[in-house]
Simulated assay, not measured.
Amino acid sequence: TTEVNTCFAECTTDTNCAPAAEPTMTTFSVDMNEVETVSADGVNLFGQFSNWGNIPMTDDDGDGVWTVTIELDKTIYEYKFKNGVDGENQESLIEGSSCTVTTPDGMFTNRLVDLTEAEAVSSTGVVCYESCEACMTNTTDLEANNNLINLYPTIAQDLMYLDVLTSFDNGIVKIISLQGELRNTIQIGNNTTGNAINVANYPQGTYILSLTTDTFRSTQRFIKI
């Protein structure tokens, strides 16, 4: 008989194997601000690392950028983002783009991330949904100032009112549950006072109201009773 000594996934002739690489905590982020409607089921990450199953993402501060951090081995992965939970809601990427790879049969074009040289904590950066680049209006570049809005009452059954304490051109209000569900999107023009918001049909719970304009973004929490 012949005994062969080698290391798994290495071309060695003995069992002096290299130590296994430590995993990396990798943060994936996608900017949904240019998507017309974010699914009530939220945004999901899926890829080879999850056997193409959904990994829920969150937008805790209501700025439209959804994130999730997962522990991964240091290797190369294909992945995508999904607006919702169903396969038909996955993003459509352009073949040949700088961040993509297309399967040999030409059926799927996915994002590609190389973590072989990643640090213990790493990030793929913030990209726009269905793009390799940042969104044209990236809310992470806007001034975050939560003192520029006044929401009242913050414990409400039906109507609340939003005052904006500075001038602006156009504003988009988004109301998101703590589970990441987008409940409503409202355009308020340049109205600075008395913007009525009806939450009568919302389930009881805590929500985040986010106002994004061309120069700043503000968030505030409220409770629906």
Rank of each mutant, 00 (worst) to 15 (best):
T185C: 02
V126N: 05
T116D: 14
I197Y: 01
P203A: 14
E119A: 12
T140I: 13
T137N: 12
S123G: 12
A118S: 14
G205R: 12
E181R: 10
N150C: 06
N201I: 02
A134P: 10
A134L: 04
Q187Y: 09
A156C: 10
D169K: 12
E117P: 05
T140L: 11
E133Y: 12
T212L: 04
A120K: 02
L159D: 08
G189M: 06
I186D: 01
T140R: 10
M160Y: 00
G194W: 02
M160W: 03
T193S: 12
V127W: 11
A200F: 00
V113G: 08
A196F: 00
P153R: 01
Y152A: 05
V127Q: 15
I155D: 07
T140Y: 04
I197D: 01
D141S: 14
T116P: 14
E133H: 07
M160P: 00
N150Y: 07
T154N: 12
V173G: 00
Y129I: 03
D158H: 10
E130D: 09
R111T: 14
G189S: 11
S123V: 06
N146P: 09
T109Y: 11
E181S: 13
I188P: 09
A200M: 01
I208C: 05
V121H: 05
Y161R: 02
N191Q: 15
C128N: 15
F216P: 06
A134K: 08
V121G: 01
C132K: 07
V199E: 04
N138F: 07
I172H: 03
N195G: 00
N150S: 13
I197S: 04
A120T: 10
I175E: 03
L162P: 07
V121T: 11
D141W: 03
S122P: 12
E117C: 05
A120F: 06
Y161K: 02
P203C: 11
E133R: 06
L182E: 13
P203F: 10
N184S: 04
L151S: 06
A156P: 08
Y207R: 01
Q204P: 05
S177C: 14
R217L: 04
T215K: 14
A118W: 11
G205K: 12
N201F: 02
V126Q: 05
D214I: 00
A196H: 03
F108G: 07
L209C: 05
T109C: 12
I188G: 03
L165H: 05
D114S: 11
P153K: 01
Q179W: 04
N184Q: 15
N110K: 09
T139E: 00
N147S: 15
I176K: 06
V199M: 03
T193F: 07
N146L: 08
T140E: 14
